[in-house]
């Protein structure tokens, strides 16, 4: 089975072709980061314009790389939410049109389900597993029992994990996007220099909070001489990253207790590309008798291979969608427990 995937929910325009035996025949990603960097974040209208400008060329590129014609596809999958709706509509409508013209089924994919199932594409992880989904828009712990069967164990009560990194980067004078910039700066920093709080740590639930941590970083920045020295920036980033890893470890341990059926701890989403976080989660999993899996960085940040793969998973179960599927700016993967 061969599925074309299309992803346009944020600031990456991406197309990919994936097979049901877990081969990635094409994986094309065009990052718009340079278009948005001057504004310090993603501008929805600029993103939507760029998606339309590039979607056709990137689809052709994926088909060429895979050496396929449209009639050789088995289905077309496109992200239909959640995300910036102007961009989602471009990818969803384009995907529907390709599916219709190729006379193939259309699969409306929840972007979060793409992240949630990506480790099954990269590492063939079996159900059930515990998922930490941490990205620019989300931070949640999910019990994954099967395709379409997700139970939310905990979520952020304020900012997403990636937002925390972006805001700390801004305060430290680092460029957007903040995740890679903070991680790079933290490499030479002292994670113990600044005593930052660990919000939510020790609470009986599995929820997250990044707002207080962000404010604590702001207060520290106010005490430091300006402009910030390279050493101060490195120590600040390292201390922040350590606080995030510590909090995530604590929350994940709670979730392991709440979902004892899990055999594997899986991390996904852009923030799961952070090496310190991966190391921490590897240790948490080992201490609790779980395997640990996280897709390679390219499959953690936004991409279309995970969308095509979610399409494979859903198509195998007969879960196709109509061409009248309405794109959804908000689309929770699961309700609370």
């Amino acid at each position: 089975m061969i599925v074309l995937g299309i992803e346009t929910s944020c600031d990456e325009t991406a197309t990919a072709i994936v097979t049901s035996d877990r081969r990635i025949l094409a994986d094309v990603i065009l990052s718009q980061t340079d278009d948005h960097r001057p504004f310090g974040g993603v501008v929805p209208e600029i993103a939507a314009r760029a998606h339309l400008q590039h979607i056709e060329r990137l689809t052709t590129q994926a088909m060429d790389e895979a050496g396929l014609r449209f009639d050789q596809l088995d289905a077309v999958a496109a992200t239909c939410g959640p995300g910036l709706i102007g961009g989602v509509m471009v990818g969803a409508t384009f995907g529907k049109a390709v599916a219709f013209a190729a006379n193939k089924p259309f699969l409306a994919i929840n972007h979060l389900e793409g992240h949630a199932l990506a480790a099954r594409l990269s590492d063939d992880v079996a159900f059930p597993y515990l998922l930490l989904l941490a990205s620019g828009g989300h931070c949640q712990l999910l019990a994954v029992e099967g395709v379409g069967h997700y139970k939310r164990l905990g979520t952020t009560i304020d900012d997403a994990a990636g937002e925390g990194f972006d805001k700390v980067a801004k305060m430290a004078g680092l460029p957007y996007p903040g995740g890679p910039a903070v991680e790079a700066a933290a490499r030479t920093g002292d994670p113990a220099r600044f005593a930052l709080p660990r919000p939510m740590k020790g609470r009986p639930d599995c929820d997250f909070s990044f707002s207080g941590l962000k404010n604590a970083v702001r207060l520290v920045v106010e005490t430091l001489p300006k402009p910030l020295s390279g050493c101060d920036v490195a120590d600040l980033c390292a201390s922040f990253q350590a606080a995030v890893a510590d909090m995530v470890a604590d929350r994940t341990k709670r979730a392991i207790r709440a979902f004892p059926a899990a055999k594997t701890l899986v991390a996904a989403g852009g923030v799961a590309a952070n090496q310190t976080l991966r190391a921490t989660l590897t240790q948490v999993a080992a201490e609790n008798g779980l395997a640990f899996a996280a897709p390679p960085g390219r499959l953690c940040t936004d991409n279309a291979a995970m969308i095509a793969w979610a399409g494979v998973e859903r198509f195998r179960l007969g879960l196709t969608d109509g061409l009248d599927f309405a794109p959804r700016p908000r689309w929770p993967l699961a309700g609370g427990n």
């Binding site: 209208e45 939507a48 314009r49 339309l52 979607i55 056709e56 689809t59 052709t60 449209f70 102007g86 509509m89 471009v90 990818g91 409508t93 384009f94 995907g95 529907k96 049109a97 390709v98 219709f100 013209a101 190729a102």
Partner: peptide
């Protein structure tokens, strides 16, 4: 309307590329 124009063009481009 920007969104409306994009939806029309996305549909047309998807149809035309495939066909």
């Amino acid at each position: 309307t920007f969104t409306g124009i994009r939806i029309g063009l996305a549909a047309a481009k998807g149809l035309a590329l495939t066909a």
